[in-house]
Amino acid sequence: MTTATRLAVLDPTVEPIPAHAVVAQRPDTLDGKVIGLLANGKRNSVELLEAISDVLADRYEFKAIMARNKGNASRPCPPPLAEEMAEECDVIITSSGD
């Protein structure tokens, strides 16, 4: 309760929008799945994804791999590319190299 002697001040922060931060469902296995590899355009980001997919390929039988590069690390993924990968892939792995 506000009293005359207390100093009331305002919260300066803006909360994130929770609806934008839903965690995707995880599959039980990668067998038979389409794996998306999305590099962020920095140096070594492609090499890092290739190394990860090699390790995973030893353990699972993928249905297919879709490798893409968003090309510019400092810009969000172009919506058409994000939509294409979301439609085609069961799992997407991204990387940031340097």
């Binding site: 506000t2 002697t5 207390r6 100093l7 009331a8 001040v9 305002l10 919260d11 300066p12």
Partner: peptide
């Protein structure tokens, strides 16, 4: 905005 209450400015 959410309101916070304090005894004085130094506490804020």
């Amino acid at each position: 905005s959410r309101i916070l209450e304090f005894d004085d400015a130094s506490q804020v």
